[in-house]
Amino acid sequence: MREISYSEAIREAMCEEMRRDPTVFLMGEDVGVFGGVWGVSHDMLAEFGEERVRDTPISEIAIIGAGLGAAMMGMRPIAEIMFGDFLMCAGDQIVNQVAKARFMSGGKAQVPLTIRVTTGAPGSAAAQHSQSPESWFMNIPGLKIVVPATPADAKGLLKTAIRGEDPVIFLEHKMLYGEVGPVPEDENFVVPFGQANIIREGKDVTIVGVSIMVKKALQAADVLAKEGIEAEVIDVRTLVPLDRETLIRSVAKTNHVIIAHEAHKRAGPGAEIAAMLAEDAVEYLDGPIVRVAAKNVPLPYSPVLENYVLPNVNDIVEAAKSFWPGKA
């Protein structure tokens, strides 16, 4: 299969959906002439024109709110927010308007809105440009939270988001944009929500990865294999909906689980996953549920401090080894 980058995969999904469906359009800050600050929508303006690739003012409330209104009137907007940190500028629109429109209206409102946003620490971007906001919104019923970790998933999940009828927060990790991998060319290739992906099978410990931590979990699994520990690595793909069955089945097999994400540990996505496993899979567990996550402090600018605060491959390796203290 031909290989393209995560960034190109996202672009391809948008372009294909826009060719297929005239109601799909993209709007956001610098998505047109500039092609997106991360270059994701490069040259889309040339193909689709200003009507459908819309540069907006720096007005997150209006971007999301207009996305909501257009969606309710039958369009399928892709609203881009440059950094996940800025979602909070549009907090009310997302939490009180977008998420609840369908339910509050007794099902009258249809909200096929995709909110594309970057997540994660790109390195020394400091506290307002490095956050992983996924769990801020997991607590809000009505939103779907999608965290692609590979180019193929980025394409397939984005297509599901655009074609679906619900609002989706689609979180693109900045440090994955350059990641290259096989991506199907089939226009109807989609990846359904709520299906976690077992990327590597193993019998000793389950590592549940979120976004970039899937990559780090795979690296950790390589290290662990050399030490005789066989890790099973699962990419959650979507946090809402969450594929409970796949996670529970894996834990039933390995009896040990680590959850790895870049968001802060406290009330991060891992807290929900851990609670779910504690409720539904405790009988399978031979050890504590371990979360490998960012420390509970804002992301520092200094590379030394940032490395210290962010979770890394070694943290996963150490967490896994801690289940077998006797083992070298």
């Binding site: 020394s124 400091a126 506290a127 440009h129 804002p298 600018y301 200094s302 590379p303």
Partner: peptide, 16 residues
């Protein structure tokens, strides 16, 4: 330069 002698002890950088 993200040094401890900086205005924000290296925590903030240019933006803060």
């Amino acid at each position: 330069a993200a040094r401890s002698s900086g205005y924000c002890r290296g925590r903030g950088g240019s933006l803060h």
